[in-house]
Structure formats: structure tokens, C-alpha cells
Design a protein around this nucleic acid. Structure first.
Lengths: 163, 163
DNA sequence: CTCCTTTACGGAGCACGTAATCATT
DNA sequence: AATGATTACGTGCTCCGTAAAGGAG
């Protein structure tokens, strides 16, 4: 069982949307659907119920939800455990807009490089901060509707740094 | 992070041997080494220390051991949770030799088919029961030294049933 | 009409077995 | 000598993006 698949499953359940989960995980909706399919085949039950434009977890999906969350959290903490870093976990950062395309990429990039145990995430469903930082730092797939103003990866930070 | 890789890592640590883990997981030693390599790259630290013919867990390997065990257990219980089966977990069966190549494959096969939540495992490091059941039920890779007496999969039970 | 979901399809990369080599007991 | 660990290498399969189609709002 691939813990990354479980993480996208959690994203789908939390946002009730495959497209939103795809944006959050830097994947195409197609990939999200395929990950869900793989998971559903592995556990032998449907996990999300397709209801038109939205989705919601099935009974089976709800049943594994807690276990899946613990599992993903454990998997992400393992990198820190292996390097006996005290610095493991998540910090939540709020900044004003001008910082987003200015200093923030530099800071995140340096932090990611010096502290491998830290997970860098850009939360929020299509919130402004996400869009701006994503545009400054990473080139989205061409299938995305957002008209990316031909911005390339900057500040030495690539897609792998943003999760 | 692939939970199956974690499981083979646990096998390696428990048996202090890559070859033994390979037999237990129905893999070649090569595959086990590659799984270990993938894990070590993912967590960014060496997990097992090669000491001649034997192996032992490094400090990093010991650090993640508990988490890895919980993770594997959680992953395996998820199939049962999704199908809200009460029958989840492990039963340990001991039998006399004559049963191993006689009734046991039939019984395990039927149980595996009717109760998807049950994990069928053949424990023990090269113990007699393992060898006999493995020979009766499943064709080992040709690289294995054991002179398989040209036995084919029997009783409708294939490699996937034995883990 | 726009956005979401799903499927088909192709390519890149991964996983694993085979075979060979070296090291260990 | 026999067995364990490791590596190179080829193949089959997995994963994911692209493209296209259908459906909901």
C-alpha cells in the first residue's frame, strides 16, 4: 500500500473534490482517479462515492479514514526518526502577499535543504496564497485552466519542495 | 512509502538475514536488497548494516522499527476495515506433517477466498513446515538452491495466497 | 459555457528476476 | 564447497500526463 496514495485519498475526502485534491497534490485529476482506483482495488471496496460534480466518502472510506490518517502521519515522521531529528512535524506560516513571491521561496528552499525532516506544504484549496506561491515557484501542468504567465521554477526550488 | 517494502525491512531485521527475508516474502535476495535501497533512499539514512554474512539494523533502522511495525499492521488491517469484517488479524496454526501437503492447502485456500480480511502467512525461517507447504503449494524461483521436485501450484492456491 | 469526472493511450520509470561476482563460514 | 550479499542488466508492469468525451451546475 502506497502511503502517497492514501494521502491523496485523504485530500479527496477532505475537499470532497477530485479536482481540488489534484491541485493540492500537484497531480492531474486523471492521476487522482487512478490512485483511488488502485486503493479501492487493494482494499476491495469503493472508497469514494461519485455524486455528480462532487464526491463523498463511502461507508468503507469512512471506516478506514482514521487508520489512513495515522498511517500517513507515521510514514511522514519516519524520515525524521531515521535521522534522529528533533525538528519533525509541521509549522504553519502566514505571511502578507508581497512576501509570497519575494522572500518566502528562498526561505522555504533553504529550510528544506538544511532540515530534511521538515515537510513543506502549501495548504488551502485554491486560496490566493496557494496560487501565488505555486505560480512563483513551480510550473503547473498545461492542462490546468489557470493561465500561467509563463513563469519558470525560481529560487532553485522545484516541484519536489512543494507538497 | 510502500508498506510492502517496510514489511520486508521488518523481515530482514527480525531474521538478521537478507536471504531468509527473501524466502519468507517469496522474493529473490536481489529484490530484497533493492527494496532496502529504495527505503533507505526515501528516509535518507542507512537502515541495515552489512556485517559479512549477516546483517543487523543500524541506529536509524532501530529508530523507525516501532513506527514501521505499527504502519505495516495498520495497512494490513485496512482491508478488513473497509469491508467491516470482524474477522481481521492473524491466527496461528500448528499441524502435524501429514496435514501440510494434504488438507492444509485446501483449507487455507477456502479460507482466503471466503474471508478476504484474513492474512495467510507461513512463518518460520526455513522451518520444515514452511519448506513442505511451500513446495506443495507454490513453485519457487529457479535460482533457489532447493531442488524443487517439479511441483506445480496445487489446489487452486497460488503464490498470492502465501505471504 | 465552464468546470468536474472519467476513460483511452502512450511514454517514462520502477520493480523484480536472472545471472554473475565477491565475500563469508 | 556451500551459502549469503551485491551488482549489472533486461523485461514487464506501474504510474502519470495528455487528450478527449460526457455530465453537472
Amino acid at each position: 500500500m502506497e502511503t502517497r496514495f492514501l494521502k491523496t485519498f485523504l485530500s479527496v475526502v477532505d475537499s470532497n473534490s477530485i479536482a481540488a485534491a489534484a491541485r493540492k497534490e500537484s497531480l492531474t485529476p486523471s492521476a487522482v482517479v487512478q490512485r483511488l482506483r488502485a486503493l479501492e482495488q487493494e482494499v476491495g471496496a469503493a472508497l469514494v462515492q461519485r455524486a455528480g460534480h462532487s464526491t463523498r466518502a463511502t461507508e468503507a472510506g469512512l471506516a478506514i479514514l482514521d487508520t489512513a490518517r495515522r498511517l500517513v502521519e507515521a510514514a511522514e515522521s519516519m524520515q525524521g526518526l531515521a535521522n534522529h531529528n528533533e525538528e519533525v512535524g509541521t509549522i504553519r506560516v502566514g505571511v502578507i502577499h508581497s512576501i509570497i513571491t519575494g522572500l518566502l521561496p528562498d526561505i522555504l528552499s533553504a529550510m528544506k535543504a538544511s532540515r530534511p525532516g521538515i515537510q513543506v506544504e502549501v495548504p488551502g484549496q485554491s486560496s490566493d496564497i496557494y496560487v501565488r506561491l505555486g505560480e512563483a515557484v513551480w510550473m503547473p501542468p498545461s492542462s490546468w485552466s489557470r493561465p500561467s504567465r509563463s513563469l519558470k521554477p525560481l529560487y532553485g526550488m522545484n516541484c519536489a519542495g512543494i507538497r
